[in-house]
Amino acid sequence: MLMLTPVETAALLLSLRVALAGTVFSLPVALLVAWLLARRRFVGQQLLNGVVHLPLVLPPVVVGFVLLVLFGRHGPIGAWLYDTFGFTVAFTWKGAALASAVMGFPLMARAMRLSLETVDRRLEAAARTLGASRARVFWTITLPLMSPGILTGAILGFARSIGEFGATITFVSNIPGETQTLPLALYAFTQVPGGDPAAWRLCVIAVVVAMAALLASEVIARRLDRRIGGVS
């Protein structure tokens, strides 16, 4: 029971890789968007806010379809990427990472924005009177104080990525070993006669992965809280 079949191992590792890549690449972007939404006032801010939240309210299939149109080999962005860098995301694990990053983005940016809004700006002012530039204030005061929010955002984004199904299957299809993540593999098993036991095994794996991620985030969150003086 403890031994995973090659298909399961492939699906699990692929899922982790896709979710990790999607999370890592959307982190800085989400941070920038959170900062724009929380700290700046500009024309079109509400529009940006709406666009960022769209993946949360749209059917994932719509997101997958739009990605397919934009990033497909003949799509405007996809063609450009291929012509310029010889690089394509369509029907590859990178595409799956892109799809899950887009789907997880609203959750990530939202958590970061909320935590950024709770950072005491008076502390930032104090740091500047002590001679710290804006950049140093951001790295030494703002970022550490919003670290619990960044962690929460990352966890939410990661969790959303692990569970991503609709956008992924629409955008990069269900190719074993390349784009077949855990949920896609599970779906595939449910579509063949007698696939139920295999589907159950994947369910258990999914639960174990989810629990491990939750526990890890809890431990890290406590450490961070202690570090920034939330618990004394």
Partner: peptide, 19 residues
Amino acid sequence: PPEKRRLGYIFQEGRLFPH
């Protein structure tokens, strides 16, 4: 900007960095 003025500021509420 504040960081170029070299003025020390002691606030009513201290404003120590908690981390």
